[in-house]
């Protein structure tokens, strides 16, 4: 791996991974607050149906740029459905349809002219279980670039290494890039999937309970990475783990099953506020463990 030994010219690196100051103080995050950041995405009056079943009723959300927005709530409250509607992964499910609008930089992703393929290059996703392809570590990370095409071989290697570096995996895999990704541990696999998503330089990353298959140490590594990526990438994370939402997110949305088992948004607030001082009685009941 001579490419690693030879330090590339830092000016030539396109998405420079700037080391974030270890700013973990929640009050500081709150001070920087969702209100001041420009909006990256917004969801308006989203209704989702699986055939005749209304799974999500009238959800509206605002997702500020560069921040981490968490969606929490009990099982079956529709939080994953909302997340997977954003990059239209639900379109793969027969019988699924949705109404409302999801705006990304002022463009409606649910609109008739919207191009799901092009949009998914801007909006990446991390899944519940790590899902590396049965191919080499290198080929996994290079996949998104190769399908998009037009990246010369030398640059491909550079971007793959940068992406692995951003996902804090490079040191562990740099001397076995050509081995199967399936030989990595679960935590490593999930970081590989993060590197794979980062390689196409997405503006948004959606995470669907990304740590639910990982042990606590691997979970903390992913959470650290999320904080490091905040500011560079807009992140939306669905989690059933309230502590996780409290640890990593800037804003938290709470969803609950409403009438007819349709998921509804109860409230969305800056994370510290939601956990310290919930506006809605149902939020308070949930975070204090009084039901669920």
């Amino acid at each position: 791996m001579t490419a690693i030994e030879r330090m590339p010219d830092p000016v030539a690196l396109s998405p420079v991974p700037q080391p974030q100051p270890p700013e973990r103080s929640t009050t500081a995050v709150l001070a920087a607050a969702p209100l001041s950041a420009p909006l990256k995405m917004s969801v308006h009056n989203l209704h989702c149906y699986y055939s005749d079943f209304l799974a999500v009723r009238n959800v509206s959300l605002e997702i500020p740029e560069g921040q981490i927005t968490a969606i929490i709530g009990p099982s079956g409250c529709g939080k994953s459905t909302v997340l997977r509607s954003i990059n239209r992964m639900n379109d793969l499910i027969p019988g699924f349809r949705s109404t409302g609008s999801i705006m990304l930089d002022g463009e409606d992703l649910l609109g008739p002219q919207s191009d799901a393929i092009a949009m998914r290059r801007r909006v990446g996703m991390l899944f519940q279980r790590p899902n590396p392809f049965p191919a080499s570590i290198f080929d996994n990370v290079a996949y998104g670039l190769r399908i998009a095409g037009g990246v010369p071989r030398k640059q491909l290697t550079e971007i793959v290494e940068q992406s692995l570096e951003r996902a804090a995996l490079l040191d562990e895999v740099k001397d076995r890039m050509d081995r199967s990704a399936l030989g990595l541990s679960g935590g490593q696999q999930q970081r590989l999937c993060l590197a794979r998503a980062l390689a196409v330089d997405p503006e948004v990353i959606l995470m669907d309970e990304p740590c639910s298959a990982l042990d606590p140490i691997a979970t903390l590594r992913i959470e650290d990475l999320m904080r490091e990526l905040a500011g560079q990438v807009t992140q939306v994370i669905v989690t059933h783990n309230m502590q996780q939402a409290a640890r990593v997110s800037d804003a938290t949305a709470f969803m609950l099953m409403g009438e007819g088992r349709a998921g509804e948004l109860v409230e969305i607030s800056p994370t510290v506020e939601l956990f310290r001082n919930p506006r809605d009685r149902r939020t308070e009941d949930y975070i204090t463990g009084r039901f669920g």
Partner: peptide, 27 residues
């Protein structure tokens, strides 16, 4: 094949055919 493979590829902006030819068939 696990559906996660298909989703993983599509979520990266692959077309159906790219998903079939580059991920699913090799797997």
């Amino acid at each position: 094949l696990p559906p996660a493979l298909r989703e993983g590829s599509l979520a990266l902006g692959a077309t159906r055919w790219q998903t079939v030819s580059r991920v699913l068939l090799p797997a």
